[in-house]
Design a binder for these strands. Structure first.
Length: 621
RNA sequence: GAGCCGGUAGCUCAGCCGGUAGAGCAGCAGACUUUUAAUCUGUUGGUCGAGGGUUCGAAUCCCUCCCGGCUCACCA
């Protein structure tokens, strides 16, 4: 019943299209209903095929029918778009319109037209726009190097201005192919014009296809750097991969957040800023590794599956090992393993990898996130402050080009400017509560007074929270507007930091800092507790907290105690939330903008359900 | 987990005081030998997120559910 329309559509008179329909019948239209049922059987998602996709599938069938390979893999490009733009910028002669001649020739002036030698070049990429104008066609092609083009294009524009030409308003990071029918009439007609009597008589090239073209560089009448396609022993332009699905609107692009994140591949194709964000993310990782490697740190990988929960206060994901029949946690932090390695003599050690925390999602939280942790023997948390601010300033220059970055907006809507030049400000929790919260020393030591203040401010504080935890939470609420610029917050109470070393003068506090930038926590570090007896007692205190109902406590890790008993050198360790750092350096306010595939509810649940109903109907009809 | 907002053509969106769907782009057909969101002419394309209810009649009103966004809660 649901398919009642299909045969009608198939039989509907199409005028000039009817011949095509009958020709196509073998491949799609004639077997429409049975094929649909078949799709439903092997993959429900195939039901999404629409008219546009059926046309494109027909084009692939037409290529096959002509005895050609629809997905060839023998095309090897000799230049990227970056190479091409560099060639145009390399010689002032190439700034104005010209046509190309063989690279062995000398520049000539022929009938008023400038001709410059240009190398025979092969380029490949995805077609983002097609503009056929009679017997010439313009293609906008995107390749792997195109991510670098915003800068290259700007340079190109600067050069054009220098040369007295108007600035081009090129859309996106692409390179242009120019195809004149004269150069290869057979290919031109096959790709852009209907062909009488062929299996598919319409154009074969679509936006979204991957193509390979060959020819010589030249500039169009309007000075656009282009590749002038020409036939050689092979066609001037070949489709290397046919896209079955159409790309989003060339002007509005893809803006629906859900689709962007679920189909990140499309997002990356059509949104230049997304490609740029992840290129920068790669540079951040590269920069971190370079910085630490130069400082003599060794990169390691420790277990992601932990038998014992530890290293942070967080709820875990649980999993199970079948053969051993034992429960395992996905790690919430690598800390305890990394310090075992320092015991083992790797005195400077770091790991960049995923942590998993079973908590809610937000603009700043993804269940799996990338954490850098590094540990340095014979150093204190104060040494690490210097190391961290140096690292971040260096990364900012490498990735964003300056220690001054903009991130988000101020209350008045203007861009918020953040200065990442070292040194960063240092603030003690107690001082913050006093100065920004208007609290007296007596109040700060009085849990009741602090909770009352929290209530006044509308800050929710867990009833299990100890005095120290109340102090920290209240501080974070009060200080937030004051810690837009990078700030090290220090003097954390011991009970909130079971792995940190006590301060020698004030044993109720630990030698720890958290780094806040733009109001979000970027880093957490402390001098490590290396007294095995104290560590054992603190684990026991954690167990006591757990008994009271705190779900985010650590478990007793006797092997870690044993490691400490062998002797952990005086060590300081630091964790940096890499995703959040990338957010800062890419002006992304949502963590999902810096994670390629952020966690989302599965999309197939509903679709499969729908498809089931549909195929059920189909079988009945 | 709670509150608010949203889901309409491949994409971006109108339509939402009930009368069975529109635009632009993409697609298809035609014209055009240097375009820049090319232009001009014609045209195809829709289980209006899913299910149920009210009604002669539902994209529109009501209920339930699914998915997403924002804010909050928990956290880094």
């Amino acid at each position: 019943m649901r398919f009642a329309a299909s045969p009608i559509r198939g039989l509907r008179p199409r005028g000039p299209r009817s011949r095509t329909q009958s020709t196509l019948g073998r491949t799609t239209a004639g077997a429409l209903a049975p094929r649909r049922t078949c799709f439903a059987q092997w993959n429900p998602r195939m039901l999404e095929r629409n008219e546009l996709m059926r046309q494109r599938l027909a084009k692939i069938a037409a290529v096959r029918a002509a005895g050609q390979v629809p997905y060839p893999n023998d095309f090897v490009p000799t230049a990227t778009s970056t190479d091409a733009y560099a060639w145009f910028a390399a010689d002032p002669l190439r700034l104005a319109p010209f046509s190309a001649i063989a690279e062995t020739s000398e520049p000539v002036l022929d009938a008023g037209a400038v001709k410059l030698p240009a190398p025979w070049t092969r380029m490949a990429g995805r077609v983002l726009a097609i503009n056929v104008k009679g017997k010439v066609a313009f293609l906008r092609v995107q390749d792997r190097a195109a991510v670098h083009l915003p800068a290259a294009r700007k340079n190109d524009d600067d050069l054009r201005e220098t040369a007295g030409l108007e600035r081009r308003n090129q859309e996106g990071a692409t390179f242009q192919f120019f195809f004149s029918r004269d150069a290869d009439p057979e290919t031109f007609d096959a790709l852009f014009k209907p062909t009488e009597g062929a299996a598919w008589d319409g154009p074969r090239l679509d936006i979204g296809d991957i193509v390979g073209g060959q020819g010589r560089y030249f500039r169009t009448k309007t000075s656009e750097p282009s590749l002038h396609l020409a036939a050689n022993d092979e066609p001037a332009l070949r489709i290397l991969t046919k896209a079955v699905r159409p790309l989003p609107d060339k002007w509005h692009g893809l803006s629906d957040t859900e689709t962007r994140l679920r189909q990140r591949y499309v997002d990356l194709i059509v949104n230049d800023d997304v490609r740029e964000t992840f290129r920068r993310r790669a540079k951040v990782l590269q920069g971190i590794r370079g910085f630490l490697d130069r400082a003599g740190y060794v990169e390691v990988e420790t277990p992601m599956m932990h038998p014992i929960l530890g290293g942070a206060a967080a709820r875990p994901f649980r999993t199970h090992h079948n053969a051993l029949d034992m429960p395992l946690y996905l790690r919430i932090a690598p800390e305890l393993y990394l310090k075992r390695l320092v015991v083992g003599g790797i005195e400077r050690v770091y790991e960049i990898n995923r942590n998993f925390r079973n908590e809610g999602l937000s603009v700043r939280h993804n269940p799996e996130f990338t954490m850098l942790e590094f540990y340095r023997a014979y150093a204190t948390y104060e040494d690490l402050m210097v190391e961290v601010e140096t690292l971040i300033a260096e990364l900012a220059v490498a990735v964003a080009g300056s220690t001054t970055v903009t991130w988000g907006k101020n209350a008045d809507g203007t861009p918020r400017v953040i200065e990442l030049q070292a040194p960063f400000r240092r603030v003690k929790i107690r001082d913050g509560l006093r100065e920004w919260g208007g609290l007296t020393d007596a109040q700060i030591a009085d849990e009741g007074a602090l909770r009352k203040k929290a209530e006044e401010l509308g800050v929710h504080i867990d009833s299990h929270a100890s005095l120290g935890k109340v102090q920290v939470e209240l501080f974070e609420a009060i200080a937030e507007p004051h810690i837009v610029q990078p700030t090290f917050v220090m003097e954390y109470p011991a009970e909130t930091s079971p792995l940190a070393r006590r301060n020698d003068q004030q044993p109720d506090f630990v030698d720890r800092f958290e780094l806040f930038i733009g109001g979000i926590e970027i880093s957490n570090a402390f001098s490590e507790l290396n007294d095995p007896v104290d560590q054992h007692e603190r684990f026991e205190a954690q167990l006591l907290q757990k008994a009271k109902g705190d779900e985010e406590t650590m478990e007793m890790d006797l092997d870690y105690i044993r490691a400490l008993e062998y002797g952990l050198p005086p060590t300081a360790g630091c964790g940096i939330g890499v995703d959040r750092l990338v957010m800062l350096l890419t002006n992304s306010e949502n963590i999902r903008e810096v994670i390629l595939f952020p966690h989302m509810r599965p999309e197939l649940a509903q679709k499969a359900d729908n498809a089931e109903q549909t195929s059920g109907d189909g079988a009945g009809a």
